[in-house]
């Protein structure tokens, strides 16, 4: 995908107009590899695309913190990737004013066979930093993630916690003021989470924009003013957090009454 175009004159950070999207359905991993192959051979597991977003329109203003509730796995990921521009919409239009950092499982982009330092350059580059910018931010990243002593060791040996911290620190040092965040703003153990919160609050006060897709609404009550609620591929509510939670409850209630297994917490 070519570099995403940005329109500095736009008055919204990102604006979606009538966006629809189909995504391949997540294959359910049941049984052993052999069983799966057999099932595929028998034509039981077939690739299919399902509608995950239909005719979605909304805009996010600069400096806002917006939560996204209710969209399930593929839908949530598609939405975040569309916002950040790492995926193109099937139909509809998306315009953005500035680059938006996609914080979508960043830690999974690490290469195990690279050293920590090399990984910082790799992931920084993926997120749109030039090597010079990475170099400039390197001390801060290292300090934030607390990996100073193992900077040149291979990442493969690092525990998941360290990788998460590192990913977070890299993403936060990208020279941007808008973030599309998957699931959780803060990561790691308790002291690190505190550190994250204060960093994020600081960013917010300086006018950064946050779009957070989450399953844990309570965490965000103190952070977001606005929430978008999705139900069955459609945007059903755009309001304050408390109202949105109310709507979300109703949606789930209705789904349960219809005998459908509601939105599973993916």
């Amino acid at each position: 995908m070519a570099r995403i175009p940005v329109e500095p004159n736009l008055d919204a950070v990102v604006e979606l107009a009538h966006v629809s999207m189909r995504m391949p359905r997540r294959r359910r991993r049941k049984g052993s590899g052999r069983k799966q192959r057999l099932r595929r051979f028998a034509g039981e597991v077939r690739r299919e695309e399902i509608e995950v977003l239909s005719d979605v329109s909304f805009r996010v203003n600069p400096g806002e913190s917006v939560a996204i509730f209710g969209s399930n796995g593929p839908g949530r990921q598609a939405l975040l990737r569309l916002i950040a521009g790492t995926l193109r919409a099937d139909s509809g239009e998306i315009r953005r004013r500035e680059p938006i950092v996609p914080m979508i499982e960043v830690a999974r982009s690490f290469e195990r066979s690279y050293s920590m330092r090399q990984n910082i350059y790799l992931v920084g580059g993926l997120l749109g930093m030039t090597p010079d910018q990475v170099e400039e931010h390197l001390p801060i990243i290292v300090e934030n993630a607390g990996v100073a002593s193992s900077l040149d060791r291979y990442l493969g040996a690092a525990p998941a916690l360290v990788r998460q911290k590192l990913a977070w620190s890299i993403a936060m040092s990208v020279n941007a003021s808008a973030y599309a965040i998957d699931r959780t703003i803060v990561v790691g153990d308790k002291p690190f989470r505190e550190q994250c919160w204060s960093h994020v609050q600081g960013l917010r006060e300086s006018g950064a924009t946050f779009i957070v897709a989450t399953d844990a609404p309570k965490q965000l009550r103190r952070f977001c003013q606005r929430a978008l609620v999705f139900a069955d591929t459609q945007l059903v509510a755009d309001s304050t957090i408390d109202e949105a939670l109310e709507v979300l409850r109703e949606v789930r209630q209705r789904a349960k009454e219809l005998g459908e297994p509601g939105e599973p917490p993916a």
């Binding site: 070519a2 990737r81 521009g85 790492t86 680059p99 499982e105 982009s109 749109g128």
Partner: peptide, 12 residues
Amino acid sequence: TGAQLRISTLPT
């Protein structure tokens, strides 16, 4: 490369 493509706007 799945995870990398998900967060990158570099040319595929």
